[in-house]
Amino acid sequence: MMLTIRAHLWRFLPAFFLIGIMWLLWKALYIKNIPEDQISSKPFPSFSLNDVRHEEKAVTLADLQGQVSIVHVWASWCDVCVREHQEWLNIINQWPYPLVGMVYRDDANTVKTILAEKGDPFTLLLNDRTGQLGVDLGIVGTPETFIVDANGVIRYHHLGAIDQAYFESELLPVLKQLNGNDVG
């Protein structure tokens, strides 16, 4: 009797296994793949890069300390970034936070041309020619935007382009809160 029950149980094994797989596949259909904005507290990595506009000038992490800044990663070869540039001009016009740009694996001359043509909202503009600072930051593509507090800690990370409306609803509160301890 026991033997026959055990024999019968074996037959059900493949069926159960496949049902398990079906459940997994069904759940997998609903995995969200949209990268969400991350609120984190990782320190901004140390670096030493030249400013694209003043090549003799070396910029380091120390230059970011002391104030809340927005770090924006972009590139001239990235169409989305070039279109987004206008948005940043408008944003900084209205909310003059320090905007630290970082051009990713880019050509300095092309960048300078774009800034000359369209305008330059950047306080500092890092030239990450090899993309190594980008790797340190965990950059996946361009454009990406970080908010760094006065102690050099990354407090916010967004993947993708930003328009003024998004800035005002998502980034501005964070900036205001971080600045809340000092003069707003």
């Binding site: 493949p14 049902i19 079906m22 069904w26 259909l29």
Partner: peptide, 20 residues
């Protein structure tokens, strides 16, 4: 994906129903 999965489930149930 849902449709194909549903179809796959029906095939599984039918086939294993008969098999068992």
């Amino acid at each position: 994906g849902v449709f194909i999965l549903a179809f796959l489930a029906i095939v599984l149930v039918g086939a294993f129903g008969i098999y068992l």
